[in-house]
């Protein structure tokens, strides 16, 4: 299944604003992050485990355990700092 990816702030600067990712049916957000890390640089450094990365699935904050389905919009970004 194909997932649409979006990146914001420092992750957008490192990875570009958008990308796509092919994943097995039922994959989780954590598996999407791992698949990107496996692509190597610049994804491996930007999304490395231990770095503070937050995710939103279809424009709502989510945990990395959330399950993905075809056509979903998955965003990765650093902790938010508005207000």
């Amino acid at each position: 299944m194909l997932i649409r990816l979006r990146f914001f702030a420092s992750l957008r600067e490192a990875l570009g604003p958008e990308a796509s990712l092919e994943l097995p049916e039922g994959a989780s957000v954590a598996q999407a992050r791992d698949a990107l890390i496996a692509r190597g640089e610049p994804f491996a450094a930007a999304l490395a485990r231990g770095r503070a990365v937050r995710a939103a699935l279809n424009q709502a904050l989510c945990d990395e355990g959330a399950a993905l389905k075809a056509g979903d919009e998955l965003a990765f970004f650093p902790p938010v700092t508005g207000g």
């Binding site: 914001f8 420092s10 970004f77 938010v80």
Partner: peptide
């Protein structure tokens, strides 16, 4: 509303300083 917005709304600040531009840490 302000406490909620500070941690749950997707905004990011980038500051310009004499040392260069930097993303603000949460």
């Amino acid at each position: 509303l302000m406490d909620y917005l500070k941690t749950q709304a997707p905004f990011w600040k980038k500051e310009t300083t004499p040392e260069g531009a930097r993303w603000v840490d949460a």
